[in-house]
């Protein structure tokens, strides 16, 4: 018998990359459905487009790099990145916006560094930030939830919109800023928060619709925790940081600082805490390091939201924290058995 010598353990692998990624996709479903429920099927068009572009770019680059294509495509990591990216986009976005974003995410964010496992930055966030900086107008045109406007774009209309075959002008009445945007502009004009939040765009705690979507992200996040796909360190510390910063300033002056619940339930905090910041490749690896990492992202989100130039800060916060990961990991190495 001549066979290649392989080392123990000789047990069937209990886990796989594919399984992990499928868990994440499953966990994303309820939130995505809620999103479509409140804002129309545009988001589904975005997700579909993003996945198609992501896979196409990934396949092309793997070909160029002479790497096996199929195993990499079917690990679904590109699908997850595309999905998260699409969720960050406005509900309706032209197809080229999605393509450019995914191109940057896959090429510059992932493969230029050596592909999955070697990328120091979260690819989805790289794509998103590039778009936010290059196409600020397209990236900040959001739409009203059905509960407010009484109407959303149908699937066909969304597709037509994406491919630019209809005049955008006819839906201008539906477009609006996000609740976070509103708060930011309002405060800039010295309108107290209470007054800003009278607008129909706002619900009980956060933005209308947004608060429900956040809840479903939360449900998905708990599913990930239960299935041990992610661990509690990053989400908990991130949410703690956002909430406690918000609480602190809310207590100082509730007129100009929104309540912690508002911060929690608007924008991308919950999805960020459970889905984006927990991307293992670009996150810190030690337990303690992950707590620092989460705290850092949480506080940065708040700082950017309140004092920064952008209404929401999750993408920048994550990328900034990514940069600190080597340092965090270095200083939080656990004690080895038998060492004092």
């Amino acid at each position: 018998m001549t066979r290649v010598i392989v080392s123990s353990p000789y047990v069937a692998p209990g886990n796989s990359l594919k399984r992990l990624m499928i868990q994440v996709i499953v966990a994303l479903l309820p939130g995505t459905i809620a999103y479509a429920w409140f804002f129309g099927p545009g988001v589904i068009v975005n997700v579909a487009l993003a996945i198609i572009f992501a896979l196409a770019f990934e396949a092309a680059i793997l070909r160029l790099r002479a790497k096996p294509v199929l195993p990499h495509l079917t690990d679904f990591s590109a699908v997850v990145a595309a999905w998260l990216f699409a969720l960050c986009l406005p509900m309706h976005a032209p197809w080229w916006l999605v393509a450019v974003g995914m191109g940057f995410a896959m090429v510059a964010g992932k493969h230029l560094y050596g592909g999955l496992g070697f990328n120091p930055f979260n690819p989805a966030m790289v794509g998103y930030v590039v778009l936010l900086i290059s196409f600020p107008r397209e990236m900040t045109t959001w739409y009203l939830p059905a509960a407010v406007s009484g109407q959303t774009l149908s699937l066909a209309e969304s597709v037509a919109y994406s491919f630019g075959s209809v005049d955008i002008g006819q839906w201008d009445a539906l477009s609006s800023a996000t609740p976070l945007d509103q708060v930011k502009t309002g405060i800039g004009q010295n309108i107290p928060i209470d007054e800003i939040r009278q607008a129909p765009l706002f619900g009980h705690y956060g933005g209308t619709g947004w608060e429900w979507i956040a809840l479903w992200w939360f449900v998905g996040g708990v599913y990930l925790l239960i299935t041990k796909t992610i661990r509690w360190h990053i989400p908990l510390s991130l949410l703690t940081a956002v909430m406690s910063m918000a609480l602190l300033f809310y207590l100082i002056d509730p007129a100009i600082y929104a309540s912690p619940l508002f911060h929690l339930l608007s924008g991308a905090v919950v999805i960020g805490a459970f889905f984006i910041a927990t991307d293992p490749v670009s996150a810190a690896t030690t337990d303690l390091g992950r707590i620092y990492y989460g705290l850092m992202i949480g506080s940065l989100i708040y700082v950017i939201r309140v004092w920064g130039g952008y209404p929401d800060g999750i993408a920048f916060a994550v990328l900034l924290a990514n940069m600190c990961v080597p340092l965090i990991d270095y200083y939080t190495q656990p004690r080895v058995y038998g060492e004092k």
């Binding site: 290649v4 690990d75 496992g117």
Partner: peptide
């Protein structure tokens, strides 16, 4: 599982 087959990168 015995072949030193293809394995994914560390994530």
């Amino acid at each position: 599982p015995h072949a030193p087959g293809y394995h994914d990168e560390c994530i």
